[in-house]
Simulated scan of single mutants.
Amino acid sequence: MKYTNLGRAGLTVSRLGLGTMNFGPVTPEADAHQIMDRALEAGVTLFDTADIYGWKLGEGITEQIIGRWFEQDPSRREKVVLATKMYGPMGRGPNTNRLSALHIRRACEESLRRLGTDRIDLLQLHHVDRSTSWEEIWQALEILVAQGKVLYVGSSNHAAWHIVTAQQEARSRNLLGLVSEQSPYSLLERTVELEVLPACEAHGIGFLPYSPLQGGLLAVSDGQEGKAVGRAAEPKTRRSLERHRDRLAAYKKWCADLGQDPSRVALAWLLHQPGVTAPIIGPRTLAQFEQSLSATRLKLTDEQLTELDALFPGPGGAAPEAYAW
């Protein structure tokens, strides 16, 4: 496993991050523990979760699963860069979601309890809150950092101008600011190349792509669509499959000619992209984890990268050159 800094932070993370969204609702707890064991053995240090994962309102099922894994062997905690996210609804009443100072404090305390830890290494704002000012958000986060409950702050699903605004306010308070952004990025979804990736590079922010297989579209083999589970079986993903069927068929043939699994190629492509720190993989099974792990050893030539760009053209580079003279 290779390692790199998370943006301009001194924090070092593995080039692959373990996403845990499937733990609980899809992957049984015992299997999830086995995947985490193997990830640690393989040198994966970045573990990514969220308070809403598990999809039972307010219960934080996935965080609890990780917490019980730490409890089995407390030495595991110091080997992991633990990242979680907050924003989504954790109750039905007021102030149980979004990014008010009240909810930020409550969400952090509850995540600490479920995870069985005294700190969150990377607390990520799971979505943009247009009703709360960055002054309020940073004030709440500054207190958590001062208390030692949060070490670093990241964002997720933020547009470039949100990221830049956040950094401006952080600097006015003499804070480090955001050290990472987590957005969807894959061969099929390259919108972040327009502005998000350039903003992250300009501000020294690490970029953590999620959904690197586009909900499984870049991994589901021909004839296996009906057997897809998880995100690959969602109606939205199946509609996207129909829309991109010809392109995906050409891609899978290209991978077959190369003698490589499509999912392995898709992850390797991401690892070759400038500004990418660590793709977040979301294995459902140990076999899927092993397949993803092998992508770190796949080197693509410049010619192969050019051919993939032809199959899956991006937006044309960074803005404004991508759409203006």
Rank of each mutant, 00 (worst) to 15 (best):
S186D: 09
L178C: 06
A199P: 05
I281F: 12
R92T: 15
T132G: 03
A266R: 12
E110L: 02
C108H: 08
I143V: 14
H162E: 13
M90K: 09
E136D: 15
L258P: 07
A310V: 12
I35D: 01
Y323N: 05
R190G: 00
A295M: 12
P279C: 11
T84Y: 10
Y210G: 04
M21G: 02
R245F: 10
R8M: 02
N174T: 05
L6H: 07
H203R: 15
L300N: 12
N157F: 03
R130L: 14
T301G: 15
P262C: 11
V44N: 09
Y251H: 07
A228W: 08
F47S: 05
A318R: 08
Q167T: 09
I137G: 00
E135K: 03
I143C: 02
P94D: 06
K85T: 13
A140D: 06
V128K: 03
N95I: 02
P25W: 14
G216Q: 04
L241S: 08
L305V: 14
W69D: 00
H126I: 03
R239I: 08
L308Q: 08
A322F: 03
G10D: 08
G275L: 04
T4N: 09
L298P: 13
G154N: 02
E201T: 11
R76N: 07
P212T: 06
S211T: 10
L208T: 10
I143Y: 00
V81Y: 06
F47T: 05
A322R: 02
Q168K: 12
G215M: 02
G282P: 02
P74D: 11
Q34A: 15
H203C: 11
I66W: 02
S180M: 00
Y185I: 02
P94H: 08
D246F: 06
E242T: 13
R231T: 10
D246H: 13
A30Y: 01
S75V: 07
I205P: 01
N95Y: 11
M86P: 00
F289H: 03
A146E: 12
G154T: 01
L248F: 08
E307T: 12
P209F: 12
S75N: 15
A83W: 06
Q260S: 13
E321L: 10
L197K: 11
V26Q: 11
Q72Y: 00
G60V: 10
K2Y: 04
G88V: 06
T45Q: 04
W134N: 06
L197R: 15
Q34T: 12
L11Q: 04
T165M: 10
I35C: 00
L144P: 06
P315Q: 09
L57E: 09
F289E: 01
L308M: 09
K253C: 10
I163M: 15
Q224D: 14
A318G: 04
V80M: 07
T165D: 14
Q182F: 04
L305K: 15
P235D: 07
P184G: 01
T191C: 00
T285I: 01
A160L: 07
Q288A: 14
V164A: 15
V220A: 05
E136N: 10
G282A: 05
P198Y: 11
E321D: 11
D257G: 12
T45G: 01
Q260D: 07
E63K: 12
Y152D: 00
Q72T: 13
A318C: 03
R130F: 12
G43Q: 08
L258K: 14
R245E: 14
S294G: 15
V192C: 13
